[in-house]
């Protein structure tokens, strides 16, 4: 049986990671809750170093509060990360289940399609798609999701293939159960671990790709800004105000470390042992 029966134990490492994640979420929500102002321009307070003038992270070239701007950026970056994972995982789960359910030729064909997608130069196609769809947050999410779902599809397919051989599924078939209830009541609960795992793996990758795109100027467009586009602004001013790239960089890096450690721990717990 592949099902992980033992209940999940939270280790200290995971608690620490979850704590940090909550902090970053709190930062994203701090902008509306604390009434921070990311927009107002104070020309006389331009490029203040961190800590001075009551600005924790300093100000940008127009005198805007960098912390407030990063808080708004957190909303966009996290939204893109989680929305991409959601779309990709739903799509991948459906595709993987379908492929494994029919097996044979259908399965082979569907897996060949995935092979082709894997060999595409992902970032370039994502750029083309996001330009094509009009470079909004939604188009970025769609473009990113389009290249993230094959991972989920592969993992889910493997899982469904081995689930199908299970006795309780055979028993269900022999009793004449219908396919929809089979999927809903038996496949889904047993796939839940893998679904959580692939979500945890997709989120950081989406955040990373989005920030890279925004950094090279092909991601979210003003007036919206993500951590990546803030880092890009900071890079233009790296000679005069290094704090403008240090803080976005530090935030992206910390978030990535946390999400990667969480994903790794989940993998150790949930991945079926060969």
């Amino acid at each position: 049986m592949i099902r992980t029966n033992n209940r999940f134990k939270l280790t200290l490492k995971m608690k620490l990671c979850l704590g940090f994640l909550l902090l970053i979420l709190a930062m994203a929500f701090s902008e509306p809750l604390l009434g921070l102002d990311p927009v107002y321009i104070h020309p006389e307070q331009s490029l203040l170093p961190p800590g001075s003038g009551g600005y924790w992270f300093g100000t940008d070239d127009l005198g805007r509060d960098l912390f407030a701007r990063l808080a708004v950026g957190a909303q966009i970056s996290l939204l893109i990360g989680f929305a991409t994972a959601l779309v990709a995982v739903v799509l991948g789960t459906l595709y993987g289940t379908f492929s494994a359910y029919f097996e044979g030729q259908v399965d082979t064909l569907m897996m060949r399609i995935i092979d082709v997608i894997y060999s595409l130069p992902g970032l370039m196609i994502v750029i083309l798609f996001s330009v094509f769809f009009g470079r909004s947050v939604i188009s970025l999410v769609l473009a990113l999701a389009l290249f993230s779902w094959p991972d989920t599809a592969r993992i889910v397919r493997g899982q469904v293939l081995s689930l199908k051989r299970e006795e309780f599924i055979e028993a269900y078939h022999s009793l004449g159960g219908d396919a929809f209830r089979l999927a809903w009541q038996h496949f889904l609960p047993n796939l839940m671990g893998m679904i959580i795992l692939t979500t945890a793996m997709t989120v950081p990758r989406a955040i990373l790709t989005e920030s890279t795109l925004s950094f090279i100027g092909l991601g979210v467009e003003p007036p919206q800004s993500s951590w990546g586009s803030l880092a890009s602004e900071g890079w233009q001013l790296v000679r005069v105000a290094p704090h403008m790239i240090l803080f976005p960089g530090l935030l992206i890096f910390t978030t990535m470390v946390i999400l990667n450690i969480l994903g790794d721990t989940l993998r150790e717990e949930l991945e079926p042992q060969q």
């Binding site: 990373l208 920030s211 090279i216 790296v238 240090l246 960089g249 992206i252 890096f253 990535m256 990667n260």
Partner: peptide, 22 residues
């Protein structure tokens, strides 16, 4: 190792420039 995996190349590159070049 996991930090290197989590470090976007543009931030790492930016930090290298900041430290070694500027």
């Amino acid at each position: 190792g996991i930090s290197s995996l989590s470090m976007p190349s543009f931030i790492f590159g930016g930090m290298l420039v900041l430290l070694f070049a500027l």
